[in-house]
Design a binder for these strands. Structure first.
Lengths: 193, 193
DNA sequence: TAGTATTGTACAACACGTTGTTGGATTAGT
DNA sequence: ACTAATCCAACAACGTGTTGTACAATACTA
């Protein structure tokens, strides 16, 4: 790794340490460079402003389609076949899960959430492409509901330090997505009679 | 309305006009007071800083429970009775829908979304209170999925200028929440065979 | 007219982004 | 191979704009 790359990474790391704790508006260039051990001016040789630093971080965190969706995704195609979710660990999530949780969380970045939703929507719609759907508007709303729920499920899972194993989460997801959240809630309530 | 209230409202309105167009960080006190037609110092007699102005706005927009949830909510209780959704127009949403859409949107405020989710979760859990649920963790995930989906559904609806009527949206919501998003998607795909 | 709201002005503190400088490394010319 | 020119990371210092505060002067309004 060249010296230049190293410096840039150090600055990004320092920025992230601060971003975890406080909102963008409260972070100053001076804080970043102090933490990373550089002169304040050095920051500007690598980034236009603080916002660009965040953009670079977000870009590096935006996962490939499979990375986020596979642990949860299971979708019946028209012909009845099922896209199985990929089992086992996912290096990407293990590496960046913490950062993603922050960006999706209450102090996070709404733009990031928006982009993530767009990606997931893209995948789901790709299963329906080449088909003409009558209820186009309704279809979009169903997808939006599902994608948002999926992301939030994942975010809560990370927020809670992955308090249940991936398989259990997958099961909850599957039941909810196929039977409906309110039906599942009803079942859970009735189970305790 | 007293002069004081009027001034405060004028300042908040001016702030909102700017907030619609640019992120918090780019808004200055001078811009606000210029737009509202006051001296810059006047701002500080009403607000500690710009952030407090946003907080006040968010607080004024945070709806009572019924306001957001009733247009969509329908939940079977254990005894079989159903909480019917309130029909018809909702003054609050008609008044503030635009602002809410901005806060929920891609340039919005993640804290607001977080708070909104908390409120909705609160309601749903209130239906289950006094009951002991075995799968506590799973239950929470199902609720999270549902609440997030509900909010996103609503936000998309506002973003699209309420392109379908409230009744249709309620129907989509109902089917999805009771039958499951993926089941509904499958139905829509199979319908066109 | 009395009391309150708003203005105008000034100020220190702070963060910003630019500029010009230093010194070590790299390259080019002979 | 040796010298000179150039590049580049890092730095220090400066001017600018914004913030938050204070207080006396002025305008509004009840």
């Amino acid at each position: 790794m060249s010296r230049k790359e190293e410096t840039k990474n150090n600055l990004l790391d320092a920025f992230w340490e601060l971003y975890k704790e406080k909102p963008m508006a409260k972070i100053t260039v001076k804080e970043i460079t102090d933490k990373a051990g550089y002169n304040r001016g050095t920051f500007y040789t690598y980034f236009i402003d603080i916002n660009e630093a965040l953009e670079i971080l977000k870009a590096s965190l935006m996962p490939d389609k499979e990375m986020i969706i596979n642990p949860f995704m299971e979708l019946k195609k028209n012909d009845g076949t099922i896209i199985e979710p990929i089992e086992g660990t996912n290096d990407y999530l293990k590496k960046n899960g913490e950062k993603i949780a922050v960006l999706l969380g209450p102090k996070g970045d709404p733009g990031f959430v928006h982009e993530l939703k767009a990606r997931l929507r893209e995948i789901i719609i790709s299963y329906a492409k080449d088909l003409e759907i009558k209820e186009v508007e309704d279809f979009e709303y169903v997808i939006e509901y599902h994608v948002a729920g999926l992301i939030s499920l994942y975010q809560l899972w990370l927020e809670k330090g992955q308090n249940i194993d991936e398989e259990s989460l997958g099961h909850v997801y599957e039941e909810t997505a196929y039977k409906g959240a309110l039906s599942v809630i009803n079942r859970m309530l009735n189970d305790i009679r």
